[in-house]
Design a binder for these strands. Structure first.
Lengths: 210, 210
DNA sequence: GACGACTTCGAACGTGCGTTTGAATCATAC
DNA sequence: GTATGATTCAAACGCACGTTCGAAGTCGTC
């Protein structure tokens, strides 16, 4: 009716937008179908249930991001021998921020928020998509940082993901708190800041050991 | 009925636990009052509304944590001249993890999750509690890291908070993914890992500048 | 032992939710 | 132009939610 794409596509866009803005539970099917210019029953017709709509929203964006990550990591490993830490870190962070820049701005907020969602179904979806990524990057980072134990390495990956998610979710809050000093819309600078921080965090010494 | 404390206390405990486990929206008053062994109407009688219960849950724990942070920071500034970065970082992270160790395990998961909640009321609560903390730590860290601009500094604070929240929320997921290599229950090690990472992240050079 | 304030209780209210249904509409091929 | 399958539609379903209310209970004080 309103936008040229077909209904499924419009439902995905609307859901992505409203999930990001109001959260999974608070965004109702009435809101979503209204935003998409579709009938209330459209979601259940096209996707079967709200739960399956959630899955579709995630997979539509996360899959290409992770394919991009793996492709860039493949390229790095194929090209140079030394495998620079900074390149590996960037190949992980940049595709996410990049997709966040054109289409998937809303999705990126949503998926970062979803990391904190307690629902087991949602956890399972994210887990399935992220598990192979974790393995590949664990191996690649291990080569760059041979002085770290695998356990220390995984913790630091965990911290970086936390910083990444929090950044996407709450950078507007940071802009508020710093009274405009830190800009939430300058994604390039955000990326540089985050990569600087992450590379340093990965490279840091192990001080407090038991 | 069941536990010795009075009803308000039991409601706060139950709410904290269920908010952490199921999220703010999914944990219903029927669940909460059931868990607390109280009548459904008890929350509205003692707190006025669900929203005010949320506020009470947050303030009960966050206030002491932030007082502890400021006290430790005061002590550091009163004592030694140089003001070591690691001490400052630890004075921020440790009180939170410490409270998380005995009473406030559940709360800590909840408050970290709340960081990603879109509700404006919740944002305002957290904002009010955290704003003075941000200012004090901004100043203290600025002294330790004079080579950073204030903007760079605030970004790194933001990243550390992200890592901290994500760690508390999702360390069980990390334990799953690493198949037990990283333990979610060893808070001491978590603290050391996180402090190591954060100090290194703060100290890192500014590489990618425009 | 009756008063009063404080607390608990069961029951109900209105609202919004996800889902289902069956008829209406549309598009396409014959 | 009509038959067929896919899609859209309005309406209703049952359910769980937060909140409200007045009666019932509790307990210290006179």
């Amino acid at each position: 009716m309103s936008t040229p794409q077909d209904t499924s596509e419009r439902l995905l866009d609307a859901a992505e937008k409203l999930f990001a803005r109001f959260g999974l539970d608070s965004a109702s099917l009435r809101q979503i179908t209204g935003e998409a210019g579709a009938n209330l029953a459209a979601v259940n017709y096209h996707f079967g249930s709200k739960q399956k709509l959630v899955r579709a929203v995630i997979e539509r964006r996360l899959r290409p991001i992770n394919e991009l990550r793996l492709a860039r990591l493949d390229a790095l490993e194929a090209a140079g021998e030394p495998l620079e830490l900074r390149d590996v870190v960037e190949s992980f962070i940049e595709p996410a921020l990049s997709v966040g820049l054109h289409d998937g701005r809303e999705f990126f907020v949503f998926i970062a928020r979803a990391h904190g969602n307690p629902s087991p179904e949602l956890r399972e979806i994210v887990h399935n998509e992220m598990q192979p990524i974790a393995q590949r990057y664990g191996a690649a980072l291990g080569k760059c940082l041979p002085e770290l134990t695998l356990e220390q390495l995984f913790w630091r990956v965990h911290f970086v993901i936390g910083a990444l998610c929090h950044t996407v979710i709450n950078s507007e809050l940071l802009e508020e708190v710093t009274e405009g000093l830190c800009r939430a819309d300058d994604r390039d600078k955000m990326l540089q800041r985050l990569v600087d921080f992450s590379v340093a965090g990965f490279s840091g010494p192990v001080v407090g050991e038991v």
